[in-house]
Design a protein around this nucleic acid. Sequence first.
DNA 1: GTGGTCTAGACCACA
DNA 2: GTGGTCTAGACCACG
Lengths: 123, 123, 123, 123
Amino acid sequence: MLLHLDFASDVPIYLQIRNQVVLGIAEGKLQTGEKLPTIRALSEECGINMMTVSKAYQLLKQEGYIQTDRRSGAVVCHNIAQSGPQQETLKALKLHLSELRLAGLSLDDTLALCKTLYEEEAL
Amino acid sequence: MLLHLDFASDVPIYLQIRNQVVLGIAEGKLQTGEKLPTIRALSEECGINMMTVSKAYQLLKQEGYIQTDRRSGAVVCHNIAQSGPQQETLKALKLHLSELRLAGLSLDDTLALCKTLYEEEAL
Amino acid sequence: MLLHLDFASDVPIYLQIRNQVVLGIAEGKLQTGEKLPTIRALSEECGINMMTVSKAYQLLKQEGYIQTDRRSGAVVCHNIAQSGPQQETLKALKLHLSELRLAGLSLDDTLALCKTLYEEEAL
Amino acid sequence: MLLHLDFASDVPIYLQIRNQVVLGIAEGKLQTGEKLPTIRALSEECGINMMTVSKAYQLLKQEGYIQTDRRSGAVVCHNIAQSGPQQETLKALKLHLSELRLAGLSLDDTLALCKTLYEEEAL
DNA sequence: GTGGTCTAGACCACA
DNA sequence: GTGGTCTAGACCACG
């Protein structure tokens, strides 16, 4: 599990961590039940503040992607698919599909693109 | 053209305006060549500052969605589809598809959802 | 003498007119002593305000490119090259050369480019 | 890094800042990777508003001259020379060369001038 | 009338 | 500490 942080990005670092963990789970790089690095380890490895990592983990926990066990730290949840898609995700998805449409992609182009992206994850 | 602003949201107001204009164009509520409200009008209507609206318009202009004609204000661009999809849009799209997958949606579910969202726009 | 005005440009229309007249003179499209269109004619042809054209002509006159004869309107000056290069032109030129340098052009590249642009005018 | 702002100029202050930073980079006064003053520091030093400095920095960022590292403020980019010269720069350059020509400079004069200006930067 | 710019404050998210 | 955002005014250039 390697993180690529872009400190010049508009996306806050804690969100970059959260996003890459989500992608990691979806792509199978992070298996269900697998242990995430400790906050201290990850913060030192990336040269960032512990608070930043902590914030990312809290967000992931709140969204149901991970749970924190007092003894073994943070682990990937077994039962993520409980609540169905989030309202926010759908709203953002619609916005991005609009952007693709205005960028010239047809419905077929778009669905093919989505299929490709979806399958990249499902390795 | 009605804007719904959420002042409690984390999304900055200028971005909310930008997003809703993009959606409006994609859904056909805003026709190509149509005139947007003036900065003053929109800021008064929404009870926000002129500079906030101005920032949204400048962003839309920079992204190629609108043009500001020096004589008559801001109008929706004719030739938006010039540069193809942005790298950022694709990255965000992939993330959202991952979230859907982890929320329990199959590939078919996801494609059906995308199709629905896409067609909502394409009236 | 055809003007191409871009109403969506950041450059004010009166400056676009001024710039294109200067370029026209340099390229020989506008001969020394040649008559420019009247303010009224040009404003009607381009669909712009007479004040805008007037402003452009006043600027050109002040810079010594044209002179206005009460009987025959505005004509291209005979003796433009009197005062040497303007301070502002040099400052702007230096800035643009810097931008080229930072965009990756070597000194030779830059001089070759300048030569090409210069000779385009001198047809 | 000293800024000379002309509050009476037609050139907006944020553009003056932007231009002087670009010149500073080209002249080597601002080294690659070097940290720019913080928005607060620069605004206080020059007696202008934070937002004005912020606007200049955002423009520089958008043009690829600087990056804003979320941890330590704004730094000069390493890889500026990516996209080649801008269309606008070339247009402006051609205009300035025309002005020089009409001011009486021969091709050789002009190239010598450009060489001098270019080398002033390249210390 | 329009958009562009600027001020002098303020609050917030991020790290 | 940093930059990002926002307000409630104002002035200006442009057309």
